[in-house]
Design a protein around this nucleic acid. Structure first.
Length: 853
RNA sequence: GCCAAAGUGGCGGAACUGGUAGACGCGCACGACUCAAAAUCGUGUAUCUUCGGAUGUGUGGGUUCGAUUCCCACCUUUGGUACCA
C-alpha cells in the first residue's frame, strides 16, 4: 500500500528515531567481548546560527563508519558533545543582554534537535558540555596537574614538581638550568644555584624559581592585545596583525599571563607525527608551525673601545658561511643596542628606534619588504680571523626568535643581500661562481672560497667542521631552535573556565581538589574591567573572597575544554576522576577522528600536548590521542547577487549590468531557481524592495553567482532541515556522501539530489509490487543477481577502509539498477543488500528489515 | 616569496600497484504512458568527422610496448605560512 512518498518517509524516519531513542540502542558499555572501536567527531561550537548543510558532512561520514563497525562486530564508542565556552556567546551577551549560559543552552538545544533529525547513532548518554561545572571541574584539575609539573629534559618527559624540589635540595639546579633564561627571578642574582643556596631562599624566591620550570606558568609575556575585544589572543587567533574574529587591530603588550610550556614538547610533538595517520599536508602544517631548525649559537666579541668586554651571541643555521659574514644585525629591542652604540651614531640609532616604536604590527606586516636600519658604530670580531664586522640594527631581525641577533651573509641570504645593497655594504663572495652579484644564493652545494680553513670544502659538510671547531674552542655550540612559542593560556573574558588558583602575596597556589570546581560566578557584567583586566575583575567580592587572598580574574581559552574532551567520553559521569583508568585503558586512542583542517595548529596541538603530559604523569597508557585523522572538506555556499543601479531602486539582470553603474547585493539563495530570481518573492523580502523595478533579459531576471563560505550574512545558507523536509534524512545522508570525496571542499548545490532520491525509491520498490504491497520471495537467486550483489558488497567493504563514500553510493546505485531491471525480489539477495546499505540510509533499511521479519 | 595539495565532458565526479578514459548521478535529446503537462519508465549523450576514422585527462617535453597515473619545466586554482637567520 505504501509508496516511498514524502509522507511515508516522514512516518518511517520519525518512527525509527523514536524507537532508537526509547530502546537506547546506541548506548554503549565500557566493557565487551567485542573489540573496541572509537569514532569521534570534532564537537561543534553551538553557534546561534544553527546547523547548515556543511556541518553534517563529517558527522555523516563518521556515523557511517560507526554503524559499519558496529555491524562488523565491534563495540563502538561514538559520542557527541559541545564546545560551549567561547567568545561569540559573550559577544552576543554584550550586544543583546542575554546571558551566555542562557543563549548557549538554547543553541545546544537547537543543535541537538537538528542533529537528531539526521539519524545519527550517537550515544547521547555520554554527551559532554565544556561549560558544565561537572565537566570543567576536570579541565581545572588537569590544568593543576600541568601546573604541578615540569619537563625533565634529561628524561624527555614531564615529572611532578616535588621531584624537582628534591633535586634542588640535593644538587641545586646545576643539572637542570632554567628552561628560559629570559625570565629572571627577582632577588636571584645568578642562573645557577647550589643545594645550600636553595635551602636559604625564602618562600617568594622558591615559588618564583619553581614558576620558571612549571609546565603551566605565570609570567610577564608579550601578548597580542586586542583593544576592541578587550582581550589577549593566541598567535593562531591573529591573522595578518588583526584579530581572527572581527578583524580588529592587535598590538604587542606586556602582561602577566598564564602560559603552557608547549615548547618543551616541540620535539615529541614532531616525532609523534611519525606514529599517527594524519594527512601529509596536516603533518606539514604542524611541522611548519613547530618550525624546528638545527644550527649553532656563535659568540662574537664586540670590539672594545673602553671598559668591559661585551659578547654578541647569534643563532645561525649556516655556520659554514662564517667567513662570509659582512655585518651583524640586532633586533631594535636587543639589550646590547644601548650599550654598544657609539657617540657619533647615537643620533641615528635614537631616530631609528623612535621610528620602529611608531610602527604598528599592521604596518610591519604590510611593508615586510621595506628595508630599514641603522648603524650602531660598533664592530664585532669574527671569532676565527678577528675581522672587524660592523653592527647594525634593523626590524627584519626579530627579538623573539633565536638570540635576537644574526650574522649577516649577503652572498648567501636574500634579506642580508638586499640589506647590504640598500646600505651599500661590501659583499664577500665565499661561493665563487654560485654568486652572480645580483642575487643571493642559499645553496649548500658550493665549494667554499675565501674561507680560511674551510676553503675547498663543500658547504653541507663544512657545517659540521665549523661546529666542531666552535665547540672545541668554546666560541659556540650546536643549537636547535623552534618557531613555536609557548601557548598563552589567559583570556580576559567571562565565558570560560576560571583558573583554579588562589594568590597569596602575589604568588599563585593551586586550589585543593576538594574545592573544585571553582565555579564561574554569576554575573551580568561582561564589559572588561579596564587596564587589561577581564570582566571577572568587576566582581570584587568574588576576587577578594578572603582577606589576603585573591583569585585570578582571567579565564582559560576555549582550547582548554577541547584539549581533553575525547578522554571524558570514556567515563563522562565520573565525579571522582577525570575518567576511570579502566575506561581510559579500554577505549584508549581515538581510532578515527573526523573534523575540519582549520584546527591543525591550535586544537590538534593542544590535545596532543595534554595527552602527552597526562601520559607522562601516569594517567594514560598512550601518548597520542588520535590514531587517524580525516579532514572533511568544507561545503561552501553558492551565493546569488542582484545588481542595483546606483542611487535607484532598479535592478538590472546580470547580462545587462555592464551598461549601468551598479552595486551587487546578496540575495537569499532560496528565492532563486538556478540563476533566475523570483521577483515577486524578492519584492516581499524586505520593505525596501517593495517597489523594486527590474530590467529583464528575455523576460527573466538572471542573478550573478559566486562561491563563498556559507554564512548568514551572504544569504547562501542551506538548512539541512529543509532538505530533510523534502527528501528525508536518508537522502540527505547519501547525497552529502555522493557529492564528492569527503576530503575535498565543494560548493553546495542540490542539482543531483533527485538521483539519490530515486535510488532509494528504487530500493524501496524492489521490496514492493507496483501496487505497493510488500512482496519478497524465498526463491533461489540467479547468477546475474548474485553477481550484481557481490560486486556491490565488495566495493562497500573496500571503500569504507579508504573513506571513499562517494564511490560506494555509485556502486549501490549500479546494483539497484541491475536488480531492478532483473525484477529481483528475492530475500537471499535483498537481505544482504540492505545490510550493506544500512550505515548510509539507516531509516529505510530498518523499516525494510522489520518487514522482512 | 616559501611549503603542501589539486587541475579529467555542459556540471558533480569515477578509473584499486602504469593496462579498454569518462563508471555513477545531474543536465540535455529522443521515445513510451497521457487529451495535455508534471511525475515515472526506456534509449542515447567526450569532441571533431569527408562516417573510413582522427583527437582527447591544464600547457610543453621525457621514460615506457603502453601514461589521467611515473619524471622535468611552466601555467592556474585552493589551503597553510609570513622577514624564524
Amino acid at each position: 500500500m505504501a509508496d516511498y512518498s514524502k509522507e511515508e518517509i516522514k512516518r518511517i524516519e520519525e518512527k525509527w528515531r523514536n524507537e532508537w531513542r526509547q530502546r537506547g540502542v546506541y548506548r554503549v558499555e565500557n566493557q565487551s567481548d567485542k573489540p573496541k572501536y572509537y569514532v569521534l567527531d570534532m564537537f561543534p561550537y553551538p553557534s546561534g546560527a544553527g546547523l547548515h548543510v556543511g556541518h553534517p558532512l563529517g558527522y555523516i561520514a563518521s556515523d557511517i563508519v560507526a554503524r559499519f563497525k558496529r555491524l562488523k562486530g565491534f563495540n563502538v564508542l561514538h559520542p557527541m558533545g559541545f564546545d560551549a565556552f567561547g567568545l561569540p556567546a559573550e559577544q552576543y551577551a554584550i550586544d543583546h543582554g542575554i546571558h551566555p549560559a542562557v543563549s548557549t543552552a538554547q543553541n545546544i538545544h537547537n543543535f541537538k534537535n537538528q542533529l537528531e533529525k539526521i539519524g545519527f547513532c550517537y550515544d547521547w548518554s555520554r554527551e559532554v558540555q565544556t561549560c558544565d561545572p561537572k565537566y570543567y571541574k576536570w579541565t581545572q584539575w588537569i590544568f593543576l596537574q600541568i601546573f604541578d609539573s615540569w619537563f625533565n629534559r634529561a628524561k624527555g618527559k614531564a615529572e611532578r614538581i616535588d621531584e624537582l624540589v628534591k633535586i634542588f635540595e640535593r644538587n641545586g639546579n646545576v643539572d637542570h638550568p632554567f628552561p628560559n633564561t629570559k625570565f629572571l627571578v627577582p632577588g636571584l642574582e645568578k642562573e645557577v644555584f647550589s643545594a645550600s643556596e636553595w635551602k636559604s631562599f625564602d618562600e617568594k624566591v622558591v615559588q618564583e624559581i619553581l614558576m620558571q620550570y612549571r609546565l603551566a606558568y605565570l609570567a610577564y609575556t608579550d601578548v597580542n592585545w586586542c583593544e576592541a575585544l578587550g582581550t589577549v589572543l593566541a598567535n593562531d587567533e591573529v591573522i595578518n596583525g588583526v584579530s581572527y574574529r572581527g578583524g580588529f587591530p592587535v598590538v604587542r603588550k606586556q602582561m602577566r599571563q598564564w602560559s603552557l610550556r608547549i615548547t618543551e614538547y616541540a620535539d615529541r610533538l614532531l616525532s609523534g607525527l611519525g606514529q599517527i595517520d594524519f594527512s601529509d599536508s596536516m603533518k606539514e602544517i604542524q611541522r611548519n608551525w613547530i618550525g624546528k631548525s638545527v644550527g649553532a649559537r656563535i659568540t662574537f666579541k664586540v670590539k672594545a673601545e673602553a671598559g668591559e668586554q661585551k659578547n654578541l651571541v647569534v643563532f645561525t643555521t649556516r655556520p659554514d658561511t662564517i667567513f662570509g659574514v659582512d655585518f651583524m644585525v640586532l633586533a631594535p629591542e636587543h639589550e646590547l643596542v644601548k650599550e654598544i652604540t657609539s657617540e657619533t651614531q647615537a643620533g641615528d640609532v635614537e631616530k631609528y628606534l623612535k621610528y620602529v616604536e611608531s610602527r604598528s604590527e599592521i604596518d610591519r606586516m604590510a611593508e615586510v619588504k621595506k628595508i630599514t636600519g641603522a648603524f650602531t658604530g660598533a664592530y664585532a670580531l669574527n671569532p676565527f680571523n678577528g675581522r672587524e664586522i660592523p653592527i647594525w640594527i634593523s626590524e627584519y631581525v626579530l627579538a623573539g626568535y633565536g638570540t635576537g641577533a644574526i650574522m649577516a651573509v649577503p652572498c648567501g641570504d636574500e634579506r642580508d643581500h638586499k640589506f647590504a645593497k640598500h646600505f651599500n655594504l661590501p659583499i664577500t663572495n665565499i661561493i665563487g661562481k654560485h654568486y652572480n652579484g645580483v642575487e643571493a644564493n642559499p645553496t649548500k652545494d658550493a665549494i667554499l672560497e675565501n674561507s680560511d680553513f674551510l676553503n675547498g670544502i663543500v658547504m653541507h659538510t663544512a657545517i659540521d667542521v665549523v661546529v666542531n671547531r666552535l665547540e672545541e674552542e668554546g666560541i659556540g655550540k650546536r643549537q636547535v631552535n623552534y618557531k613555536m612559542r609557548d601557548a598563552g593560556w589567559s583570556r580576559q573574558r567571562y565565558w570560560g573556565e576560571p583558573f583554579p588558583v588562589v594568590y597569596h602575596e602575589d604568588i599563585p597556589y593551586a586550589m585543593s581538589e576538594a574545592d573544585l570546581p571553582l565555579e564561574l560566578p554569576k554575573s551580568n557584567n561582561f564589559k572588561s574591567a579596564g587596564n587589561g583586566e577581564g570582566p571577572l575583575a568587576n566582581l570584587k567580592e568574588w576576587v577578594f573572597f578572603e582577606p589576603g587572598k585573591k583569585r585570578d580574574t582571567n579565564t582559560m581559552p576555549t582550547h582548554a575544554g577541547a584539549a581533553w574532551y575525547f578522554l571524558r567520553y570514556a567515563d563522562p559521569h565520573n565525579d571522582k576522576e577525570f575518567a576511570a583508568r579502566k575506561a581510559l585503558d579500554y577505549w584508549n586512542q581515538v581510532d578515527v577522528y573526523i573534523g575540519g583542517s582549520e584546527h591543525a595548529v591550535a586544537h590538534l596541538l593542544y590535545s596532543r600536548l595534554w595527552v602527552k603530559i597526562l601520559h607522562d604523569l601516569g594517567y594514560l597508557n598512550f601518548d597520542e590521542p588520535f590514531k587517524k585523522l580525516i579532514n572533511q572538506g568544507k561545503i561552501t555556499g553558492d551565493s546569488r547577487f542582484v545588481y542595483r543601479i546606483r542611487g535607484t531602486n532598479k535592478f538590472v539582470s546580470a547580462g545587462l549590468k555592464d551598461q549601468y553603474e551598479t552595486d551587487p547585493l546578496h540575495v537569499d539563495v532560496n528565492m532563486v531557481t538556478g540563476l533566475e530570481l523570483d521577483t515577486e518573492v524578492f519584492r516581499h523580502w524586505k520593505p525596501d524592495f517593495h517597489n523594486a523595478e527590474f530590467i529583464l533579459e528575455n523576460g527573466k531576471y538572471i542573478c550573478g553567482a559566486a562561491i563563498e563560505k556559507m554564512s548568514k550574512s551572504y544569504f547562501n545558507v542551506v538548512n539541512p532541515d529543509d532538505i530533510i523536509e523534502n527528501y528525508g534524512a536518508d537522502t540527505l545522508r547519501m547525497y552529502e556522501m555522493f557529492l564528492g570525496p569527503l576530503e575535498v571542499s565543494k560548493p553546495w548545490n542540490t542539482n543531483g539530489i533527485d538521483g539519490v532520491f530515486k535510488f532509494l525509491r528504487r530500493i524501496w520498490n524492489l521490496f514492493h509490487t507496483t501496487s505497493g504491497e510488500f512482496l519478497v520471495t524465498e526463491d533461489e537467486p540467479a547468477p546475474a543477481e548474485l553477481k550484481a550483489l557481490h560486486k556491490a558488497l565488495k566495493k562497500v567493504e573496500y571503500d569504507i577502509d579508504h573513506y571513499s563514500f562517494n564511490t560506494t553510493v555509485s556502486e549501490l546505485m549500479i546494483c539497484s539498477n541491475e536488480l531492478s531491471s532483473l525484477k529481483c525480489n528475492k530475500r537471499s539477495i535483498l537481505e544482504p543488500l540492505i545490510i550493506a546499505l544500512a550505515p548510509y540510509a539507516p531509516h529505510i533499511t530498518e523499516e525494510l528489515w522489520e518487514k522482512l521479519g
